[in-house]
Every structure is written in C-alpha cells, then in structure tokens.
C-alpha cells in the first residue's frame, strides 16, 4: 500500500504544526485520501525543536509516526541536523537557505533550498506566513495533494481577515519551490 511520509521541522512558534495539519487536512478532507498528523514538541511555547509528521495513504494508516521519511522540511539548522537521519534515499529535503547553511554531508537527497522566511517577509509582506510559504513549497515538491485542494485546506484553516495574505503566501511558496527545484 502507498504510504507517503512528510515531516515539517523547525523551532516552536514557526507554525510548522499548523502547516502539517493543513497538509493532512488537504489529503484527508479534500483529496479523498487518508491522512494522520502527529507532532512532538517540548514544554516551551516558543523555541525548542518542534516537528509535525504527516502520513498520507490511499488506504488505512496504522503506525501514525514516520518510519522512513519521503519529504522533510527543515526550517532551522538544528532541525536539519536532527531530522535527516531517517530521510530516505532519493527523498526530498526542503530547507530555508538563510537558516540552514550546513547541508547533510551524506545521503542522496533531492535538496531544494530558498530563503523561506525572507520570502514571507519581503515577497508576501508578513514573516508570520512563512509556514504557509513552506507549505506551498512542500505541496509543489511532493505532489501528494493537488494545488487546488491544498489551497482549499489553507483557506478553511485561517481567519477570514487573513485569507488573501495566506493565499498569496501559499502561491508564492508553490512557485518558488518549482523554480528552485529545476
């Protein structure tokens, strides 16, 4: 059975758990697949390492945590160092190029990097939507859910007043990832 594993990692407060939830929601509510989202985090509200895992499958999902990761997002150097160990050969590694300067020395990964947080700040206009920029990029790179369904999931997850901002963030993230992965 198809089983696709994604991990969104970084530091607490970057919105990566939210990004994981939206990805899983896109798959399970809008794409008609099955999905499980789980997370682990420390006691801190901000700071400390944080990860959110999403398993997507066409059938029932038993083990809800990652076994070998197909696609990993690392938004800090610490996350990149800590969470690439179970990324599978040929898997996708997306990093923020400003924050992750030391890429894994071993492992045959498809590495995509662009300044995610800076894109949110300068291209979208608000740093707070960096997680949605990253989500757009992960959607583009993984192809597990369609762009339309992912966008629906984003829009149903954010407050009314911020719909346009998030739509823009998602779209820019999606395009940037495609451009960066060529």
């Amino acid at each position: 059975m198809s089983r696709y594993e994604l991990r969104f990692s970084g530091s607490g407060g970057q919105g990566l758990i939210t990004a994981g939830i939206i990805m899983a929601k896109a798959a399970s509510i809008y794409e008609g697949k099955q999905a499980v989202q789980s997370q682990s985090y420390g006691p801190e509200a901000r700071g400390g390492s944080s990860k959110s895992e999403v398993i997507i499958s066409d059938g029932p999902i038993d083990y809800p945590k990652a076994t070998t990761v197909d696609a990993l997002l690392a938004m800090t150097q610490e996350a990149c160092d800590k969470y690439t160990h179970d990324l599978k050969e040929g898997g996708i590694l997306l990093v923020d190029s400003d924050l992750v300067t030391k890429l894994p020395a071993t492992g045959n990964f498809k590495i995509v990097s662009f300044p995610i947080i800076n894109t949110a700040k300068t291209d979208v206009g608000r740093e707070i939507v960096a997680n949605i920029v990253a989500l757009g990029a992960m959607v583009a790179l993984t192809g597990q859910v369609s762009r339309e369904n992912a966008e629906k999931a984003v829009l149903s997850s954010v407050p009314e007043a911020f719909i346009e901002l998030n739509k823009k963030a998602f779209s820019i993230g999606y395009e940037k990832a495609l451009a960066a992965s060529v």
């Binding site: 929601k25 509510i29 789980s38 997370q39 809800p64």
Partner: peptide, 9 residues
C-alpha cells in the same frame, strides 16, 4: 498522548 494529540478524519 499519541492518540489524544494526533489528528485524523
């Protein structure tokens, strides 16, 4: 805690 905090449809 895993069941309590994980999300599914």
């Amino acid at each position: 805690e895993i069941v309590a905090h994980m999300r599914e449809r």
